[in-house]
Design a protein around this nucleic acid. Structure first.
Lengths: 221, 221
DNA sequence: GTCGAAAACATAGCAGCGTTATGTATTGTG
DNA sequence: CACAATACATAACGCTGCTATGTTTTCGAC
């Protein structure tokens, strides 16, 4: 009675969609199945149409994001870890700007909201650790501060990855988060140092510094 | 030699696009001209295709946004005015969520960047007034603080107007901006009161509080 | 092992989309 | 008035997502 669909075909189509997206090529029903041996009907048997495929691509995006957040190893400095979570969030957005846009493109449905909730939960736990370490005032609601951190991260990601701000504008994350966590009770100087340490892997390394006169260009998509 | 195209037709098509957008109806070439008497070719003589129309719609969105920002009357409290600018930004996004999404949808081109620059300039002047009033530290760069305020506003607008956060999440603007301006040197308590006063018209009034049964609605467009 | 139903697949075709080609009014100008 | 360039209307093209139809494959029951 119950037939199980081949999960390999599912992830193949999702990966190919993400691949086309990263290559800035149009993701159409026919361009998806081109090259793969499957026919256009596969998109309907596995995703019930293009809308379902986009939904699956969004979830893939949130899965990748959550993997990056989960890879942030907690340290002895929970405020540094909070900044590191923000840096990981931005790093994920910069690694696939079009995928990040798709994640927040369509009107949010239930499953999308659940995936976004998992992301937010990482931040909530980070805030709770900072609160447990006595770095924050007692009256701060972890969910609220996490949501505010998310707002900052998403605003920066949206304006830099798919918007008008240049890449070096990512550095605004340091004063923004520092102000936010200081406002939540952390000591200003200590907070600044923690945020800078957590943010460092994003602005320093990662795909060569943004300083101009690049001698070599990236290969075309 | 030079023929001037009828500007009335231009704004008619732009307004109809914004109207369809607000009504959450698909904006297609044929649905645009339906009812207006003009033919599909008008979109090509006036906008050189749908891309040009979307570009014009984006500029219309920035024009409306700038009108809202310009309507914020400066008061004796420049920090309140900064928060009021943020509230006006959010108010504009909530008044037309789909238009706001279109504004930041496509890859930014030169004319779009110019329009966004005008928006940012409003914030820069607001920061400069706050700095001139001695509310901020001397070392704050107005452009940087304005960009950070924009990041907060856009993040909130994106997550609330077209994203997963509910409308009451707009209240996060108060602690976010308070932390940002306090971090820039303003006195914490005074800053909080200023931001709350500037933010008030957004969360309290405006289109009748979120409780239902609105007796009268605003006239369309 | 065989049959039958259900799922997966391939092909062809549909309406809709943005765009363009072609022919016809309309307008401004010498 | 005559001419040339613009504005417009109609029809068609290629592409899109989608669906209808027929075929193949798969799985469970006897």
């Amino acid at each position: 009675m119950v037939r199980v669909k081949d999960p390999a075909v599912r992830s193949l189509l999702i990966d190919r969609a993400a691949q086309l997206l990263a290559a800035r090529q149009p993701v159409t029903l026919r361009s998806l199945v081109a090259g793969t041996g499957v026919s256009t009907m596969a998109v309907y048997t596995y995703f019930d149409g293009m809308d379902g495929l986009w939904s699956a691509v969004r979830q893939e995006g949130f899965t990748r994001l959550e993997a990056r957040l989960a890879a942030v190893a907690p340290s002895a400095d929970p405020v540094r870890d909070l900044a590191a979570l923000g840096a990981a969030y931005l790093s994920n957005a910069m690694a696939g700007p079009d995928l990040y846009r798709v994640m927040f493109d369509a009107a949010f449905e239930l499953e999308d909201a659940a995936a976004a909730d998992g992301t937010l939960h990482h931040l909530v736990r980070g805030v709770e650790r900072a609160a447990a370490a006595g770095r924050l005032r007692d009256d701060v609601d972890p969910l609220e501060l996490a949501t505010q951190s998310w707002t900052v991260g998403h605003g920066l990601a949206s304006l830099v990855a798919t918007g008008p701000l240049p890449r070096q504008a990512l550095a605004h994350g340091v004063p923004l988060l520092t102000a936010l966590f200081t406002g939540a009770g952390d000591d200003p100087g200590r907070c600044r140092r923690s945020v800078e340490r957590g943010w460092r892997p994003l602005t320093s390394g990662r795909r060569s510094a943004s300083c101009g006169t690049a001698p070599a260009d990236v290969p075309p998509g």
